[in-house]
Design a protein around this nucleic acid. Structure first.
Lengths: 192, 192
DNA sequence: GCTAAACAAGGTCATTTGACCATACTTTCA
DNA sequence: TGAAAGTATGGTCAAATGACCTTGTTTAGC
């Protein structure tokens, strides 16, 4: 059961099989339809989520209806709203499936127990946090210094697989540009 | 000695006096002149830094000479290039003093030892990482969804003290807008 | 398989933004 | 104190960008 996750942990950590089974045991699988939400603005993020198949987005919708995307979470990655999860306060972002997805959920209390009991898991979690920090910084730098075209190029290079799975308007919402600007960039590149 | 730092730890953590002294013991104080650098692009970040007095900036300069600021670090805060420090690889950013500053430096090996020996310190460090993550997300969201004026307003509200200590061009470099745009915003607000 | 919704792309136009230049003022430090 | 560097502001202009609308195409889900 949860083969994708077991393989993931096996490949990424040194955890013994027995421990991996222990982690799996507390996970609840769930299937999400396209556009189905797992966390809405104002709700409290009560679960840690691992994506086995599919693609999720973490986003925020402004009062005038514009959507802005903070993160895409493809298969073999984790997602949650950190602030809401850690402090159990209402979330300012939403999380939903971009396409049909299969996920695993852990209740916070359960996962906290696992982290406390399994130093190797804790260490792995810290690694993930670090990587996340590095990428956030890099993305901020790109936002500050790159033109829309450079940001798009960076996105394509960094996430080659996403281009074909995401509607362009979501890529625009991730890059912080309008759909119009994105199509202009693509048109200009096509002509080269 | 290092009174500012002792008071900081005393106020922010439950560490006993003896432990605080232990942490202080390994710190090397340093005075930075205005514009003096403590980390240049390509160098390896070998120290963890606490700012007792003054103000530092973490920034990147693009090939065409534009400066982009990732972070300001005022008194009572920490600074380093995470990626370079953690993995001891060349840094892609620089850190320098905006104004005359007094800092404390710990060698990475020394601080790692402290973290390993003092669970309470480790826990505090994790708290700082969390806060940093929350703010990064928030800032990214503001970058994605806010107009330059909204970003400026947000900055002023969040860091009221910085306005008078920083040249406007650095604020522009932090907000990702040109100095021209920033002065336009301020001019418009002044007329209201 | 069909229908309704979602989507990409193009046109037009007003607005925003940045690049470049000049100027006046302020700060630094020798 | 005085020269030099740094700084804020303004003018002008071209380019980039977004808002709004239309059209043709694709996709999802019954």
């Amino acid at each position: 059961m949860h083969t994708e996750f077991q393989q993931y942990l096996f490949g990424q950590t040194d955890l013994p099989d027995e421990t991996i089974r222990q982690v799996c045991y507390l996970a609840k699988p769930k299937v999400l339809r396209r556009n189905e939400s797992i966390l809405g603005t104002g709700e409290i993020c009560r679960h840690k989520v691992f994506v086995m198949k599919g693609l999720l987005k973490t986003y925020h919708t402004t009062t005038d209806g514009h959507e802005h995307i903070l993160q895409f979470s493809p298969e073999q990655s984790w997602t949650l709203d950190v602030e809401s999860y850690d402090r159990q306060v209402p979330s300012r972002v939403s999380i939903a499936a971009v396409e049909r997805s299969e996920i695993l959920c852990w209740r916070k209390t359960d996962f906290d127990t696992l982290l406390a009991e399994l130093p190797a898991l804790k260490q792995f979690a810290e690694q993930l946090i670090s990587r996340n920090t590095y990428y956030s910084r890099q993305r901020m730098l790109t936002m500050l210094s790159g033109t829309p075209e450079e940001r798009y190029e960076d996105f394509v290079q960094r996430f080659p697989g996403f281009l074909s799975r995401l509607p362009l308007r979501m890529i625009a919402a991730y890059l912080g540009i309008s759909l119009k600007t994105l199509t202009r960039i693509r048109h200009a590149q096509y002509r080269r």
